[in-house]
Computed example of a mutant assay.
Amino acid sequence: MSSRTIPYTHWAYFPDRSSAEACARDLPDYVIRIQGPEDGRWLLRAGRDVEVGRMVERHREVEEIVVRHGGDYDGGENSRLEGDSAIEGADGES
């Protein structure tokens, strides 16, 4: 029996780029986008397919990782991040 999955993207904000990057390293099975700074904060989005029955568990796991790295977890949405992980922002990277 296979479980139904949906694409899901978590959102989190960090005070600096290095904190967002450290958090990203603890989410190796996610496609990561880091953008910023905007209003002094860096946005990290982490997306992957998630089993519907494990949504609450995944939220808790990701929130714990975000908080451990000094970020503010802002929930998530049913959406897919396409492509490779990327950092956009300071130092002209995109």
Rank of each mutant, 00 (worst) to 15 (best):
M1D: 11
M1I: 07
M1P: 09
M1E: 04
S2G: 05
I6N: 00
I6Y: 00
P7I: 03
P7W: 08
Y8A: 01
T9W: 06
T9Y: 09
H10L: 10
H10Y: 02
H10T: 09
W11D: 10
W11R: 12
W11A: 10
W11N: 05
W11L: 13
A12W: 07
A12D: 10
A12G: 15
Y13D: 13
F14D: 00
D16N: 11
R17P: 15
R17S: 09
S18H: 08
S18V: 14
E21W: 14
A22Y: 11
A22C: 13
C23T: 06
C23D: 03
C23P: 03
C23E: 03
R25I: 14
R25N: 05
D26G: 05
D26A: 12
D26W: 10
L27I: 03
D29W: 11
D29M: 04
Y30S: 01
Y30R: 06
V31L: 03
I32E: 00
R33T: 02
I34A: 07
I34F: 00
Q35E: 11
Q35T: 12
Q35F: 08
G36K: 08
P37A: 07
R41E: 14
W42Q: 01
W42S: 07
L43W: 05
L44R: 08
L44V: 04
R45P: 07
A46F: 09
D49A: 14
D49P: 02
V50G: 05
V50L: 01
E51M: 01
E51I: 04
E51T: 03
V52D: 04
G53C: 13
G53L: 15
G53Q: 10
M55Q: 08
V56W: 14
V56F: 09
E57H: 05
E61P: 07
E61R: 11
E61W: 09
V62L: 08
I65Q: 12
V66H: 11
R68W: 05
G70C: 01
G71R: 01
G71K: 12
D72T: 06
Y73R: 01
Y73K: 03
G76N: 10
E77N: 05
S79D: 04
E82C: 04
S85G: 03
A86D: 00
A86Q: 07
I87D: 04
I87H: 00
I87Q: 04
E88V: 06
E88D: 13
G89Q: 10
A90G: 14
A90L: 15
D91S: 15
D91C: 02
G92A: 05
G92T: 10
G92V: 00
E93N: 13
E93Q: 12
S94K: 09
